[in-house]
């Protein structure tokens, strides 16, 4: 009877994951593998294609080739296009924060926790969760953006002016390794829940109820991985190990953002992202 409950929990979280997130890993992998030739993404690989495609960044539906306006003389200088792109990344990240929040609210027991603890859990888990979800959109050559409608190459991201060009490389390296575990969306739903319900986040008022929920989630994840990946007996342990690498990745990222604030005076961080990053590590 206990395993039936754990299976029901996995199913519930998978369903709310599908409701909360517009682009699943399954869809992203289909686009990246080119299986779905009808919706091949628009590729941004240089300044010219960025300027051509930037008006569609964060569009949920980009116009077909014949309806796309031709690149004209009115385009901004490349530097501004780059900055505008970075701003739209921030906007999409803020939107993703609200999607993750909706997902967190669907984890049984989460909304019954002290509201301040809900904030703490989300604040500390948020960037970890976003990086895990970003891995689903990446391969060694680049990443999908704009709900899978644009593919931006890794080389082009690397060519961004300092320090932006260096910021994505560690995420690619992490993603390539993480993707080797071959988790699917139903595994991810549980893994993200486990990350969110971490009892060791600084400043939690009531640790025990958080740990109790996480304990159940962990048992559900272990069972899920056993059933879904019978050929990888060590997968549960490997997935848990990724949580350590993830914390390092996030703390490096936050540090780069702090440095950015000193060097890029014009760069203003979205207020929601500011809330999350303030006093984080």
């Amino acid at each position: 009877p206990e395993s039936a409950d754990l299976r029901a929990l996995a199913k519930h979280l998978y369903e709310s994951y599908l409701k909360s997130f517009p682009l699943t890993k399954a869809k992203a992998r289909a686009i990246l593998s080119g299986k779905n030739s009808d919706n091949a993404p628009f590729v941004i690989h240089d300044m010219r294609s960025l300027m051509e495609g930037e008006q569609f960044v964060n569009c949920r539906q980009i116009p077909t080739q014949e309806h796309r306006p031709v690149m004209g003389a009115l385009h901004p200088p490349p530097d501004e296009a780059e900055l505008r792109f970075l701003h739209s990344c921030q906007f999409r990240s803020a939107e993703a924060v609200s999607e993750v929040t909706e997902f967190a609210k669907s984890i049984p027991g989460f909304v019954n926790l002290d509201l301040n603890d809900q904030v703490t859990l989300l604040k500390y888990a948020m960037i970890e969760v976003l990086f895990i979800m970003m891995a689903a959109l990446m391969n060694k050559d680049g990443t999908l953006i704009s709900y899978g409608q644009i593919f931006m190459t890794r080389e082009f991201l690397k060519s961004f002016r300092k320090p932006f060009g260096e910021m994505m490389e560690p995420k690619f390296e992490f993603s390539i390794k993480f993707n080797l575990l071959e988790l699917d969306d139903s595994d991810m739903a549980l893994f993200l829940s486990v990350i969110i319900l971490s009892g060791d986040r600084p400043g939690l008022l009531n640790v025990k109820p958080v740990e109790d929920i996480q304990e159940t989630l962990l048992r559900s994840l272990e069972l899920q991985l056993k059933m879904n990946h019978p050929d990888s007996p060590q997968l549960f342990a490997k997935v848990l190990q990724k949580m350590t690498d993830l914390r390092q990745l996030v703390s490096d990222h936050v540090q780069s953002i702090q440095l950015l604030k000193q060097t890029e005076i014009d760069m203003c961080l979205h207020p929601l992202l500011q809330e999350i990053m303030r006093d984080l590590y």
Binding site: F91, A94, E95, V97, S98, T101, E102, K105, V111, L115, N116, Q118, V119, L122, K123, H270, P271, L272, E275, I276, R278
Partner: peptide, 20 residues
């Protein structure tokens, strides 16, 4: 609470989209 105004709002709102 003041420090995390938007997060509080997101948590307390229903599923309706929040103005970001």
């Amino acid at each position: 609470k003041e420090k995390h105004k938007i997060l509080h709002r997101l948590l307390q709102n229903s599923t309706s989209p929040v103005d970001l």
